[in-house]
Simulated scan of single mutants.
Amino acid sequence: MLEAETLAQQPGSPVRFLILISGRGSNMQAIVQAIAARGLPAEVCAVLSNRPDAAGLEWARSRGIPAETLSHRAFDSREAFDQALAQRIDELAPDYVLLAGFMRVLGADLVRRFEGRIVNIHPSLLPAFPGLHTHAQALAQGVQWHGCTVHFVTPVLDHGPIIAQGAIPVLPGDTADALAGRLLALEHHVYTEVAAWLARRQVSIGGDGLVRVAGAERRAFTAHDLTP
């Protein structure tokens, strides 16, 4: 896998993020706000959704960010959709593609084409609980800690080099909805930290397939990190 530090086409220019969403894009909103609030050397070149009714599209447009729809329903196969998406990614020329609640499984060919450049956030402490219904899975297994993982995407679903994780305790009486709601703020924090590292070109992948983040004191977060 390529070293992520080498992927930016022009080292002196802001890192370009393309963010993919399928709904309101709360993680997308957190990243956009963090770029502005923290003065990160990055820009969101576009927000793209596979759903024309995704609420996050209008939010992005209201902040001057190009927002587009590429509906998967307009294509007769997953492969055709992936080909169109890959073409659009090439046209937008991002340094990184950030999946932020993008509810489509990307095909192996597309993932390999942009190897080391696609980042996802998954609502579990991977490798535990890949796939859907992660909060219900966690409760069913009786785990005491649950969380989120930001990772590079590989052709294997919800797999790939881990960049950062966040964890919360599972409380007595928790439901799947309660876990999801309590985790969301931590998801925003973890993903924006990763976006900052990517913007500053601190992230690389070693020959052992593990992620290094230059200058980062730690890559694990808890709810205590949300306290002002």
Rank of each mutant, 00 (worst) to 15 (best):
A4K: 00
L7M: 08
L7G: 00
A8S: 13
A8D: 07
G12N: 09
R16K: 15
S22W: 12
G23N: 10
A30G: 11
A37C: 03
L40P: 05
L40E: 12
P41I: 11
A42P: 08
E43S: 15
C45D: 04
A46T: 07
L48P: 03
L48Q: 04
R51V: 15
D53A: 14
A54D: 11
L57I: 10
L57F: 07
L57V: 11
A60E: 08
R61K: 10
R63W: 14
S71R: 07
H72M: 08
A74K: 13
S77M: 12
S77H: 12
E79P: 06
F81V: 13
L85R: 02
R88G: 08
P94A: 13
G101A: 04
G101H: 04
G116L: 03
I118E: 02
V119H: 06
V119S: 09
N120L: 09
N120V: 09
N120E: 11
H122P: 08
L126C: 01
P127I: 02
P127H: 05
A128L: 09
G131S: 01
A136G: 13
A138M: 07
L139A: 12
H146G: 00
H146E: 00
H146L: 01
C148H: 01
V153E: 02
V156S: 03
H159S: 12
I162M: 04
I162C: 03
I162T: 09
G166I: 07
P169Y: 06
L171W: 14
P172W: 12
G173Q: 07
A176M: 02
A176H: 05
A176R: 04
G181L: 07
R182N: 05
R182T: 10
L186V: 10
H189Q: 06
V190L: 01
Y191S: 02
T192A: 06
A196T: 09
A199F: 05
R201M: 03
S204E: 06
G206S: 04
G207M: 05
D208L: 02
D208T: 05
R212T: 15
G215V: 08
E217S: 14
R218D: 14
A220E: 15
F221T: 10
T222L: 05
